[in-house]
């Protein structure tokens, strides 16, 4: 209850990346991402990943934080990788594998998967690595052993374009994730919001109320911990009335969720009205021009970073057009 709920990924250390202006970081990340989508050559893409890792190394943030962001999408990564690898059928044939599904092999594979799911409670980390091991042994067994009754045989052909494409997509997604986590890890949500407001300011000339929008975002961010606190209270209050959120049939589950959601809606509305009154009482006028207490200021490192990213983008576009890389 007294513990501070940290929202966002922000990792509090002091590095040149933390000190950069949020506007710079937003624009730089945007330029870098555009460049990533311009590149066609896999080696160049590798170089971009390398550059991202070098920048990460200077950020004083432990690498684990970045790997964590990979962990969340690791299943999707694995899936797209194998999908591309197995289904692309153009270019040069690299290798052909024949797999034999026999009764013994089927039994081995089933045991492996049951072990994988049963170990859920014992081994909690590195599940994806474990899944890879299970998959690889599963295929290896089919490739190598042909004991007992043969059910069927099938072939998998790997083509060079398939291999290239799957590696290409893998590299691109990993770089994208690294760069975007670099932004959220080094910038506080409020700074991010201020930066966004500053960048989007020109949109007011085409009638978009940027200040109102970003005010909404910052209020939403501000109220997440408050609402989490309220939700905890309601959860406990309903638990005192015999709600057990861990158990129950589907019918009961629906009722349990309603018993949380309805009070949360009521509280959120009440808070919103109270806040609106408080803001008005302190002279807040929607759409009126406002000054900020923390002025954003570009420094030398900002100009350097922006210039660097811009040059990077121009080079990639140039290479794409003239060398088709």
């Amino acid at each position: 209850m007294n513990e501070k709920i940290v929202f966002g990924q922000y990792y509090n250390v002091d590095s040149w990346l933390h000190r950069l202006d949020p506007r710079t970081k937003l624009i730089a990340v945007f330029l870098y991402m555009v460049a990533l989508f311009v590149i066609k050559d896999i080696y160049l893409l590798g170089a971009f990943l390398g550059l991202a890792i070098i920048v990460i190394a200077t950020s004083k943030i432990p690498l684990v934080k970045f790997l964590n962001s990979l962990k969340m999408v690791s299943f999707i990564l694995l899936f797209t990788f194998f999908f591309q690898l197995l289904l692309r059928k153009d270019g040069e044939l690299l290798a052909t594998f024949s797999f034999h599904m026999t009764i013994a092999n089927a039994l081995i594979i089933i045991t492996l998967f049951t072990l994988f799911f049963l170990s859920k409670k014992i081994i909690k980390n590195f599940r994806v690595v474990l899944l890879c091991v299970v998959l690889i042994t599963g295929f290896y067994v089919q490739y190598k052993f042909q004991f007992s009754y043969l059910l069927f045989t099938y072939q998998v052909r790997i083509f060079d374009s398939g291999l290239m494409m799957s590696l290409y997509i893998l590299l691109r997604i990993i770089t994208l994730l690294f760069i975007s986590s670099l932004l959220t890890l080094t910038t506080k949500p409020t700074d991010l919001n201020n930066g966004l407001e500053a960048i989007l300011k020109p949109l007011k000339y085409i009638g978009i109320k940027v200040a109102t929008l970003t005010m909404m975002i910052s209020i939403a961010l501000r109220f997440i911990p408050t609402l989490i606190n309220e939700a905890e209270k309601i959860l406990k209050a309903q638990a005192s009335r015999g709600v057990d959120f861990k158990e129950g049939k589907i019918g009961a589950k629906v009722m349990q969720i309603i018993s949380l959601l309805v009070p949360m809606f009521v509280i959120a509305y009440k808070r919103a009205y109270d806040l609106a009154d408080a803001m008005e009482a302190r002279g807040f006028i929607p759409d009126a021009p406002r000054t900020s207490i923390n002025l954003l200021k570009y420094r030398l490192s900002d100009y350097f970073t922006l210039g660097f990213c811009l040059v990077l983008l121009v080079i990639t576009i140039y290479l794409r057009i003239f060398y088709a890389l």
Binding site: E230, K233, I234, K236, A237, Q238, A239, S240, R241, G242, D244, I258, S259, L261, V262, P263, V266, I267
Partner: peptide, 20 residues
Amino acid sequence: LKPIRKKVGLVFQFPEYQLF
């Protein structure tokens, strides 16, 4: 823990917010 919560009834502060 459920039987305990039946035996020991706890009314929270501002319990009106738990109504739904």
